[in-house]
Design a protein around this nucleic acid. Structure first.
Lengths: 142, 142
DNA sequence: GCTGCTATTTATAAGCA
DNA sequence: TTGCTTATAAATAGCAG
């Protein structure tokens, strides 16, 4: 016996797996693991969650607690108009240098604080409306 | 020194956490972990994925690669929704008098989410750069 | 809430059946 | 693909600040 036939789990490199069969196996295992994690989160914290994943073969897999569709609908009802901010961000990251990124970070942090406060305020109003009579005319206090 | 005052990680029990502050911490940590797992899956396998989670405080958190809304829409287009009580409720909600208020809230939540992700991503890059190769190009991980 | 710190538990990459 | 096995990488519960 010169050596063990394999070296155990190898460290993860964050690049797309090249070998197709290997990729398929990894996708299958990690999809299972992801859904399990989501299940645990939902159970432990008593929250609603939904996941959608498209396989390498473009087949949709989904997990949801209590149901994917209701989660999705609930999300869409609150986020009707998506924009491509993330895509722009990714593009920006590819092209920007570190100095620019730091400057942008500072600015974003300031913006985030403002947005957070706005969001919290509006959320309070929304909850208040929902608790009382959301189908009636709202008392607008912005 | 008689013994360490702490016994390390305890085995997981699959019931809802009772203590509110404990639950909040767990939710926060596990949500982060879940999103990270999804990110890895997307990167390693080159697939599209989207996650929506509602916090104990009913606040929506989302992750998506490339973008949550596109994933959700893609899912819904392939899985036509049967009519349900939830859908009607959402529809009613959309048409209610507080429509405008909700629109604005939704918009703000969306912006906030985008800003939050931008901030997080930029912060990661900043930290990574500071620790190691700040003079090289950043590794983008979303 | 939010970091950071371990001691543990979990997840999983590889290999093979 | 689905399941085992093992060695190792990662995630995280419980605390502390």
């Amino acid at each position: 016996m010169i050596k063990k036939p394999y070296m155990g789990r190898q460290k993860l490199s964050l690049v797309k797996i090249s070998k197709k069969n290997h990729l398929q196996v990894t996708f299958s295992k990690r999809r299972t693991g992801l859904f399990k994690k989501a299940s645990e989160l939902a159970t432990l914290c008593g929250v609603e969650t939904g996941i959608i994943v498209f396989s390498p073969a473009n087949k949709p897999f989904s997990f949801g607690h209590p149901y994917v569709d209701s989660i999705v609908n609930r999300f869409l009802s609150r986020n009707p108009q998506p924009d491509s901010g993330v895509n722009r961000l990714i593009e920006a990251h590819r092209n920007a240098n570190i100095h620019e990124l730091n400057m942008e970070l500072t600015q974003v942090l300031n913006e985030l604080e403002v947005e957070r406060k706005r969001g919290e305020a509006l959320d309070k109003i929304r909850k208040a409306c929902r608790k009382q009579c959301w189908w009636k005319s709202p008392i607008v206090e912005l």
